[in-house]
Design a protein around this nucleic acid. Structure first.
Lengths: 180, 180
DNA sequence: TAATCCATGTAAGCAGTTACATGATTAC
DNA sequence: GTAATCATGTAACTGCTTACATGGATTA
């Protein structure tokens, strides 16, 4: 089964992008990785602890003036190796993404068509808003990392979000039409 | 927060489609709802029990010859009402779907481009296979439910799967090109 | 004779969120 | 004076999968 703990690798990866504290990682997630990955502090801090125990990173307490002390994490060579190994490992069975929108639609013959249409219109608005968010992220990436080797790959993932969301919007329009 | 237990509603919904046992529901999930919803027996049976306790369905033990006894579940009026209420409730914050493919790509500057390309080619193949699966599901729906009011909505969800997968394949090709 | 189908169910465990606690500093 | 920002962390809980148990009938 090779149960890969993806969260662990997400954090190892973030350690290569300039993030050095759990707090910074959370912020990064909530901005740049926002559209395809998200974890809570309740997950980040214990995982960081575990990563240190495994020798994949080191910690150092650094006092700050005015602000709370920080714990600075740095990737070790073993950590880098582990990350690279995960990157090059083939992707196995991708789990099915649960889709609440489709679940409701699947059973929607039990409600008036108008309600379903309203529902889809609302969903379309959410998608449109999401597209705007992506534009914001694009700017962030360009500001943050003009000369970073990362930027190219970050824009690939963003492009995914943009293209798939656009396709979803198209589908919404199609489906609304079919129902009208 | 209005924590909606989607699994419960998935099961209530399935009870309106001719599924009368937990076993049948699992089969239905693994075929027709396969691309956007999936649950295990360990989730189905306890939820069915709970649904009966809440008065949303009734059970009946029915002995069979040759095969194991079945427990036949039937939706009550209260159950139908509950389902309809959920259907008409607005969709709130859609949780971020974690995407392992994008997570790896995000950190892929740490590996040779060739490896990333191979990886994307492999992913593309998986997507292509998925498209074929969808065609299979389409046939299933058409056979299963020629005169069912459900069919229209089932085909909508399938259409979603087909269109989004096609868009993903396009993105794969684009990205492979950019990397070459 | 080994595997698969039918059909139900439970216990252990994991991944993850939510809510809470702490406490100084800065912005409105 | 109230809220937000910075920064770390834990405990309780939920949702879900996996692995196991049972056992006759059918298929390869």
């Amino acid at each position: 089964m090779a149960k890969t703990n993806h969260t662990k690798y997400a954090i190892l990866g973030l350690l290569t992008t300039g993030c050095r504290t759990g707090y910074q990682m959370k912020q990064m997630m909530d901005t740049s990785l926002n559209h395809f990955w998200k974890i809570s502090y309740g997950q980040i801090y214990p995982t960081l602890k575990q990563i240190v125990e495994e020798g994949l990173a080191t910690v150092q307490d650094i006092p700050q003036d005015g602000k709370p002390d920080i714990k600075e994490y740095l990737l070790t060579e073993a950590g880098e190796k582990e990350l690279r190994q995960w990157l090059s490992s083939p992707l196995e069975n991708i789990p099915v993404a649960k889709n609440e929108v489709l679940l409701k639609l699947f059973f929607s013959r039990h409600q008036p068509k108008e309600t379903t249409i309203e529902y889809l219109v609302h969903y379309q608005e959410i998608l449109q808003a999401r597209l705007h968010t992506y534009e914001g992220i694009e700017e962030l990436i360009q500001i943050h990392s003009i000369e970073k080797a990362d930027a190219q790959y970050w824009l690939f993932t963003l492009d995914y979000g943009k293209q798939i969301t656009a396709a979803e919007i198209m589908w919404c329009k199609d489906t609304i039409n079919k129902l009208s």
